[in-house]
């Protein structure tokens, strides 16, 4: 589903955000992406959504090499990717319903189909009944769930989340992660970028760790816990 092949990303000015990153995420996997801020998590996600292009190497999404993707085909790519943002990126002058319906309207779905799917998505994130509310009247956790509903309403095969629990308390964070796991269970490939170690350690999934733009390790969260414990034990 996502294949990085020796990818470099260098910004104008010489800062190298990613260097020599290679990995492959199979369809249906759920993967965490972690690392300190500035390690290149956001750059990596931007390459996947074709917000930026790799300086070197190949990024292949669903069999499409993004280096060779023409600008006019970017919208089609993005419709296959649901993105959950840390700051939600909701449109505050529209109702919850209209926010969630946006991807369907962009894709040209029929009105009745839009209504059905929006309600299904809102039901999924537990916000059915808040359709007519304006996003500003919702709590941070609710806003994030609206963002998730919008990301999945189109039933994309790939779901990206950039620090989806960044501003939420642990209890809400757990609920959000459970939502992602539910989507993963119905076959959606999920990639979650987060630096919330507590959260990751409680869930057993594949974990990619970035360190100064390089892929530092690629293993399960269970391994990481083992290593951390070993390192702590070694210290004593």
């Amino acid at each position: 589903m996502i294949k990085f092949d020796n990818v470099n990303k260098r910004y104008p000015g010489g800062h190298e955000a990613l260097s020599g990153v290679s990995f492959h995420i199979e369809p249906g996997e759920m993967v965490f992406l972690t690392g300190h801020s500035g390690a290149g998590k956001s750059s990596l996600l931007k390459l996947i959504a074709c917000i930026e292009r790799a300086s070197r190497g190949n990024v292949i999404i669903d069999g499409q090499n993004l280096n060779r993707l023409k600008s006019r085909h970017i919208p089609a790519l993005r419709r296959k990717i649901g993105v959950v943002f840390q700051n939600h990126n909701l449109l505050f002058d529209r109702t919850v319903y209209d926010n969630v319906a946006l991807p369907l309207i962009i894709a040209g779905y029929h009105q009745s189909e839009v209504g059905r799917r929006v309600r299904a998505a809102l039901d999924k994130v537990g916000l059915l009944g808040r359709e007519r509310a304006m996003p500003i009247t919702l709590s941070g956790g609710e806003q994030q769930r609206v963002g998730i509903a919008r990301a999945v309403v189109n039933r994309p095969p790939l779901l990206l989340a950039d620090e989806p629990t960044g501003n939420l308390d642990p209890e809400l964070s757990k609920e959000i992660m459970q939502l992602f796991e539910q989507f993963n269970q119905v076959g959606v490939t999920v990639l979650v970028a987060t630096h919330d170690h507590d959260l990751i350690s409680r869930l057993d999934h594949r974990l990619l760790t970035l360190k100064q733009g390089r892929l530092d390790r690629d293993g399960s969260t269970a391994d990481l816990i083992g290593e951390t414990v070993a390192a702590a034990g070694g210290g004593i």
Binding site: A49, I51, R72, P75, A76, L77, R78, R79, I81, V83, N89, L90, L91, D93, L102, P103, I106, A107, R150
Partner: peptide
Amino acid sequence: RDEIVVTKLIGATNAF
């Protein structure tokens, strides 16, 4: 501007 950015991220075409 913000709205345009968001809709572009969601996969809106320029025509849309």
